[in-house]
Structures are given as structure tokens and as C-alpha cells.
């Protein structure tokens, strides 16, 4: 019997199952053993966890969307780097429940004509949300495809009338060790900060996200408001933002401070410039077995390469 999928499928309803099914087959064979299959029932397989219902309805799609297969919802929400909740990939999903995202307020200040502190719902009110299906490349050489829900950062920044001295934008994550247990250890210099050059911030690919897979952002993915800059390594896309500040000087950023020789301010995805401790030439797409070549600017070169013309990207890594 031929089973047809309905044509009007939304990103929020894409079934990710076959992705990991193929991997499971390979790993099963690679693991050499058949004897142990019975014991497998004792462990909780991924995908057995419930996916919450969609909340945003049908959203307009973006011309920037990739048609690559999105990584499963379960993997996107259970394999995270969010050191505020612990340094293992499983920690954020496990511990981010303690983050209170409502009420939430965001300050916008610095080199703007109309600074202020806003309740999140007031801040977001003017913007139409869209689906943005982007590749995400982590500096650790793995990648995902994630259907974000968000709007261009430029739209938000314009509303506050940046002055001519606004050359950079600095973002800050919430600092509250009560809610973010990872901050009780000084693994990084809290609070987490990130930054963009103003032209990077105003680029149409740069978005603020409030959801993924048509649902509100789970806490472990940076609820309630996070940055997404798809041509840069994932750590640039700061999570759980409480402060946006426009500044004249290049701001300090957390990973750059932790390892200036390893993490640059720009941190554009670049297969030709290795991390000092591992190669950036290839990456593993979560849910697939073979490594794939990493693309310059994570495949967004046509849109963003001009921002860096004349710059030596080995020096400005």
C-alpha cells in the first residue's frame, strides 16, 4: 500500500525518525553484538519522549530557508551546549527547568536614542514571526538543521534608533545562579556575553528566535529569547538574552576571554582555519553517520562574504 504524506506539512511536523533509524542500523552492526538486543528494552530510546504541541500555527517561510532535512526535535532539544546548566550535552535538558522565563524583561541601551527596559511581550509585539530553517555549525565540529521561529534582529535594533557611534552590539545572558546552577562554578566568566559588528547584526540572516519547530523555545535552547547567526559557530548565538547594548568599541565576549587563541570575536565558520586543538575541515551532522565537508560561512557565503571583503580571515578568525 502506498502511503502519501500530505503536501502542506509544516516544519513543526517533520518526522525525524528515519534519520536516526538509519544510524541505529549501522551502529547496531558496528557494535558486533546481537546477544544484547533484549536488554535494550531496559533503556529509554531517544524519540520515545513526547514532543509538545505546536504553538505558533502556520508561519510564513523565509527565502533563506534550507531544504535540508531538519535534525529531530528530540536531538535539537537534548544535545545542547548551555554551560549555565552544566557542561555536558545532556545537562541543559535535565536542569534548565529551573529557569523562569515568564516574566522576562530585556534592556536595550548604549548608543541608541531611545533606550529602555521592556517586558518581553511588549518588546516582541511589533514583529511578525517567520520560520527560519538554518544550518547550525558548532565549533566542536558537529552540526544540525534547525527550524527556528523568529524575526530579524535589524527590525528590533532600528526601533531604538542607533546613533552613528553604534559600531557593535553586545548581548548578555541572564545571570542568576539560583536559576542557572552552572553559574555556581566559574567554568566561564559569568554572565555570558557575545557581540556582533553592527553590519553583522543588521544582516537579514541574523535573527532573534523565540521558538523552534513551531513551538516556544525549550529552556535548554535559550528561552525565551536568543540570537541566531547561522554563518558563525554556534557559541556566537547567545541564549536567554536580558541585555542588548549598542557600543562603539568591540565588546568582550565570553569564549574569546576564556581562550583568545582558540575563539575569535568573529568566529565565522571557516573550514580553512582550524581550531588549535581540532580540525574544522569536516563536521558530523547529528543524525547521520558520515562526516561531511564544512562549508565556508556555513554555506551562507553568497549572503555574507561581502561583509569581510579585504579582511584576512586567518587573522580575524
Amino acid at each position: 500500500m502506498l502511503i502519501k504524506k500530505s503536501a502542506d506539512i509544516e516544519p513543526s511536523e517533520i518526522t525525524p525518525e528515519s534519520v536516526y533509524r538509519s544510524r541505529r542500523l549501522f551502529l547496531g552492526a558496528a557494535a558486533l553484538g546481537v546477544a544484547a538486543a533484549a536488554g535494550g528494552a531496559l533503556l529509554l530510546p531517544r524519540g520515545a519522549r513526547a514532543v509538545p504541541p505546536a504553538t505558533f500555527g502556520t508561519l510564513p517561510e523565509s527565502r533563506f530557508n534550507t531544504d535540508e532535512k531538519p535534525t529531530s526535535y528530540d536531538d535539537v532539544t537534548h544535545y545542547n551546549n548551555f554551560y549555565e546548566f552544566g557542561t555536558s550535552k545532556e545537562d541543559p535538558a535535565r536542569y534548565a527547568g529551573s529557569l523562569i522565563t515568564d516574566p522576562w524583561s530585556v534592556s536595550v541601551d548604549g548608543e541608541v536614542e531611545k533606550p529602555g527596559k521592556f517586558a518581553l511581550e511588549d518588546l516582541l509585539k511589533p514583529y511578525a514571526l517567520e520560520d527560519r530553517i538554518y544550518r547550525l555549525r558548532c565549533v566542536e565540529a558537529w552540526s544540525m538543521v534547525i527550524p527556528w521561529v523568529g524575526f530579524p534582529l535589524s527590525a528590533l535594533l532600528k526601533r531604538f534608533n542607533p546613533t552613528s557611534r553604534a559600531k557593535f552590539v553586545q548581548f548578555t545572558t541572564l545571570y542568576d545562579p539560583e536559576q542557572m546552577p552552572g553559574q555556581r562554578r566559574d567554568v566561564l566568566d559569568w554572565p555570558y556575553t557575545e557581540g556582533l559588528r553592527i553590519d553583522e547584526a543588521m544582516h537579514p540572516l541574523t535573527i532573534l528566535a523565540v521558538g523552534l519547530y513551531g513551538r516556544h523555545l525549550p529552556n535548554q535552547n535559550g528561552a525565551p529569547l536568543r540570537l541566531v547567526v547561522p554563518w558563525k559557530y554556534g557559541f556566537k548565538s547567545i541564549k536567554s538574552i536580558v541585555h542588548i547594548r549598542l557600543v562603539e568599541q568591540m565588546p568582550q565576549t565570553t569564549w574569546h576571554e576564556a581562550g583568545p587563541g582558540e575563539y575569535g570575536f568573529y568566529s565565522n565558520v571557516n573550514p580553512h582555519v582550524d581550531h588549535p586543538r581540532w580540525s574544522q575541515r569536516t563536521e558530523r551532522r547529528i543524525g547521520t553517520f558520515f562526516r561531511r565537508d564544512t562549508l565556508m560561512f556555513n554555506g551562507y557565503g553568497d549572503q555574507v562574504a561581502h561583509l569581510y571583503s579585504g579582511m584576512d580571515l586567518r587573522q580575524w578568525f
Binding site: R24, L27, G33, A36, A37, G40, L44, R46, E90, W142
Partner: peptide
């Protein structure tokens, strides 16, 4: 044995290769 069982049961998380 645990790694074999977990790999077959798809219980090694999103990046099973890294976990192994």
C-alpha cells in the same frame, strides 16, 4: 556490553559516535 546494548537500543543520545 552496556555500549552494545545502548547502541542497539538507540540510547546513547544525539551523538552516539561521540558517546562511544
Amino acid at each position: 556490553l552496556w555500549f552494545i546494548v545502548a547502541a542497539l537500543g538507540d540510547a546513547l543520545g544525539a551523538n552516539p559516535i561521540e558517546a562511544i
